[in-house]
Nucleic acid binder design. Structure first.
Lengths: 335, 335
DNA sequence: CTCAGCCGTTAAAACGTTTCAACATCGAGG
DNA sequence: CCTCGATGTTGAAACGTTTTAACGGCTGAG
């Protein structure tokens, strides 16, 4: 429809060459103020919008980074994304947000797309923990909320083993001796780490390993938490756990909901501890005890690490943050 | 670093011309199977990745649409985004997700960026309801969850006046005669519409207009809901409303939290109705009565409308969905 | 008066694709 | 044997920028 006004139309209209227009756009200081004004006027008048494809093709740079997020519906990740976005925009980069929705097919598609787009860098919380899957293709890539096992790239993570230990120790100290851990699938590194931490806490307290029952779920969504709650209530009350440690807050919220529906009280009949400390955890049916992670900072740090990748003396780093237990009503002391 | 293998390297390696390689990429059926295999082998061997910038520059198409979302941390919008993404990927488009975070500066920046990127189309839930602000620049644009006042573009919305009326009628029928509406700022069309609906319900029931007190908030986040709760409790109990209708669920959750903290019971001391029916509404301290909107469908429809824009006989349409009241414990009948 | 140096501007060459008209090759139909 | 159409392939011209080296005009020093 519209013949799409280009840099040369502007040049003609302002009576200069297109190189000058390009200079006005990219190095305003190098062009004489008078001409600059004239060019800017022409740009405004013609409604010129720079064609980023052409720019990128020629310049080789793209001013865009991407974050491939594991689950855009999980508030934990939207908070991380906010940190990423803030850091990116401070550095003059735009953020391309992609949602793999825990589907490795989608993840692959998006990575392919991003490579084709020649983004400057990629942040990713991968579906599969195995970071070796990302064939190096020249685009800097840093792992978010996952630890890089090999030293081939940067990563920013939180100590999930410690987090699991904190949660579990808290429940043990509250007097619980039959505890369930709810989470899954075990293919997720996070779940495994938090479980290891829980086991470590058990060992530290001198409790037998069978004091902890692991209930595996298919994913980390609210619905699975509800399902786990039903499974839990189905157990004979003599063998039923008196406390549950959920691998994330969504599961915990589902579990809470299921307890309320079935007429059980939290924390009296079942103490519950979640993980992530999302904003909704404090507003839950019973305010949720949870393991807090520095979400925005996670994202912010990851973005900064990514943007430092093309500095000449860059060395891959592995940042690890410490989680922190936030105690609320859902795990009040057992009397 | 890597000399970036291009289409002509592939061509040379496979012993064909670059036009043929391009054909393999874009019209595989037109090239002889034998050559196609040879080219594909070369692509795999050299690790060729198509340069999307160059493609786009030449072809003029971009295979990317964008959704500028108002608040990525609000589950309502992530659900809409999911609908958008599904529809987009079905049509072979990728989705660029941008978060304006209710900041019109950010919104403008993103729109500028998207125009420069020459995306095929833009979906947007604008910060400011005034849709005339978007100077037509050749990129199709459809409004999501906002109604287009002029007929210059498509929009997909939900009948917010009806939603407000449903919520309010419900509270009135439950016997409440002093009701607060919490929401803001009034510059947001949604808030105004839901308020009008509430007033209409009032009129229908023959109640005086001052039965509804409007408490304006600065935004629609959880924290403002908490603040409103404190303001509410500060009122002398003789004049304190017995029910509150919140302009969205985040506010309602904050309000709920504040009530619990201050030792008031919901719904006995205060009945609460939210709006959006996000997943967390059902898992709240007291399961929340809310007005449900067809979230995914909203997004899906918007994307389909957008993608139909460049059909030759396209006419701008304004789709409007009906909301639905979901009654839960937070507004149980007053006895 | 000449020349070196500076400043602002420019012409033209990339960048890596897609696309189109043109070109071979081949088999079939006249 | 010639022509025709179909099938596959190709050379070269775009697309709209950025970038580089060169250019002309001016100033001040010699």
């Amino acid at each position: 429809m519209k013949p799409s006004v280009g840099i040369r139309d502007v040049a003609q209209h302002a009576g200069v060459s297109n190189a000058t227009v390009s200079n006005v756009l990219n190095r305003p200081d190098v062009v004489a103020p008078a001409t600059r004004q004239r060019v800017l006027a022409a740009i405004a008048e013609l409604g010129f919008v720079r064609n980023e494809s052409a720019r990128q093709l020629r310049a080789g740079r793209s001013r865009v980074i991407a974050y491939v997020v594991l689950d855009a519906a999980n508030p934990f990740f939207t908070d991380v994304a906010r940190g990423v976005e803030d850091a990116a925009r401070e550095a003059g980069f735009a953020l391309f947000l992609c949602n793999s929705a825990s589907d490795d097919g989608r993840e692959r598609e998006y990575l392919e797309l991003l490579h084709e787009q020649r983004v400057e860098g990629i942040l990713i919380t991968p579906v599969d923990g195995d970071s070796a899957q990302f064939a190096e293709r020249g685009t800097p890539l840093v792992l978010v909320d996952r630890e890089s096992t090999d030293g081939t790239r940067c990563s920013v993570a939180v100590d999930d083993v410690l987090g699991g230990e904190l949660a579990m120790t808290h429940l043990i100290e509250a007097g619980h001796t039959r505890i369930a851990m709810i989470g899954g699938p075990l293919s997720i590194q996070q779940v495994r780490d938090r479980h290891s931490g829980a086991l470590r806490a058990l060992a530290n307290a001198g409790l037998p390993a069978d004091a902890l029952t692991f209930l595996e779920t298919k994913d980390l969504q609210v619905a699975e938490g509800r399902g786990a709650g039903e499974r839990l209530v189905g157990l004979p009350s003599s063998r039923r756990p008196t406390a549950a440690f959920c691998a994330n807050d969504l599961l915990a919220l589902g579990l809470l909901q299921s307890m309320t529906q079935q007429g059980l009280r939290v924390p009296d009949d079942l103490a519950v501890v979640g993980y992530d400390d999302i904003e909704f955890a404090a507003a839950a049916a019973v305010p949720l005890t949870s393991v807090r992670q520095p979400r925005e900072q996670l994202g912010r740090t990851a973005a900064q690490l990514l943007l430092s990748e093309n500095e000449p003396d860059h060395e891959h780093r592995h940042v690890k943050f410490q989680p922190e237990l936030v105690v609320r009503a859902s795990s009040a002391i057992k009397r």
